[in-house]
Structures are given as C-alpha cells and as structure tokens.
Amino acid sequence: MNLTLKVWRQSGPKDAGRMVTYRVEDVSPDMSFLEMLDVLNERLIVEGDDPIAFDHDCREGICGMCGMVINGVPHGEQRATTTCQLHMRHFEDGAVITIEPWRAAPFPVVKDLVVDRSSFDRIIQAGGFVSVPAGSAPDAHSVPVRKEDADDAFDAATCIGCGACVAACPNGSASLFTAAKITHLSLLPQGQPERLTRAKAMVEQMDAEGFGGCTNTGECTAVCPKGISLDTIAQMNSDYLKANAK
C-alpha cells in the first residue's frame, strides 16, 4: 500500500516546528506502525536527511515509551492498543495520515515526536509509593487482601505511564494517570497509612506541573491503551476531598 504521511518536525525545543509531508510506498499491511516509520527513516538516513525522532522501546505495548497522535487520536484509532502494536492493516491504501507529538505544556517537545514526560515521574515522587525500606517487610501472608480489592488494584496498576490520557484530554489534564496510581495504592491495605497524604501531595504536584483540570469528558479512558477506568478519578477525588477535610 502507498501512504502520505504528514509528520510534525521540530529540530529542538527552540524550533517552531512544522508539518512535513512524506510519501511512503510498498507498505506491507503486516508492518507495525513503527516499522513503517523505520522504513521511512532508513530511506531518510541514506538520502542524508534527518530521520524522524520518535520514542519507542519494548514494542510490545508495555513499556509506555512510544506514543504519537495519529489522525487526531493518541496511539491511533484502534482501541486498547499502543502505537507500537498498531498495524498497517488498519489503514487504507492511499490514506493520508497525520502524525503529531503529545501536546501539553508539561510535555515539552524534545525533538519531532519525542516529548519530555518527566512531569509524570515527579507526580510519583510526590507520593506514589508505599514507604517500606528493603528488608523491613512482614511476611507476605500476614495481611490477607480481598481478591476483589487485589483485582481492582491491579486494574489501576496496569497504567503504563505513556501519557496518552494527557494528549487526548481537551484540558491537558493528567488526572487519569495520577488517579490510577492513587487508586492502585488506595485499594490495598498496604497503602492505607499514607492514603490521604499521598492523594493530596500527588494532586497538588499534578497542578504544580501545569496540567489542566479534569472536566470528566472521558476522552482519556477512551484512548488509554490499558483501559484505565474513570472510576479511578472518582477515587482520587474522594481521597483528595477527605484529605482536605482533615
């Protein structure tokens, strides 16, 4: 198949950036989206052009490194799929595909499609953990956990930190990411002692990073490759309210 790509090119943080059009030919439908870009990049390198910079690593949908807005949708329109797992068979021959980086002030563009997501790390630093130094833990069976709670905590914990939620949110909010971690730890007995201070600190850090507020539009959960539920945001709101009521 033959495609036209319109790709955001930006040489660095200081460059204004622009959309550049590329033609790619003989694309196999069995290729992944990133393999299609690999092939284009190989050509660009040989021709002496600068290849398109994009983040990627595991290419099996779990590390959260890859991510681009494809035709206006983070990770593309295929649901519950990261960019690296998106395959070209979902596109039509002759299609025009726009490719843009995540857009948010707390995710400044580093180059082309590569953005800086260190704001997510700082939200975790604010309290996304259980304070338990190595070697100090009691026996794993000393605290039973209801299976339902463990399962729900797991669902929240599957967040891969890719940032698609922020990219999709009309407000540029990081609520789904932050709430997923708060919920994961809130549902487990091990997370209880720090539950309220954690929620408060993480929400405040999210604000301090410059993310927008949540207006419950549900765009985030729709594009989340792991299908993190909006329930987590309600859980975060509840914990945050309780933390402030104290």
Binding site: V69, G72, E77, A105, S173, G210, F211, G212
Partner: peptide, 16 residues
Amino acid sequence: ARQARPVKYVAKKSQA
C-alpha cells in the same frame, strides 16, 4: 486548560 495546551493539534478527533 488553555495554558496546559499552548500548541494546538493540527488534527484532533474526539473518542468520547
């Protein structure tokens, strides 16, 4: 929200 997204998308499609 406006400050959180200083650069707009060229193409943006709602999924919700």
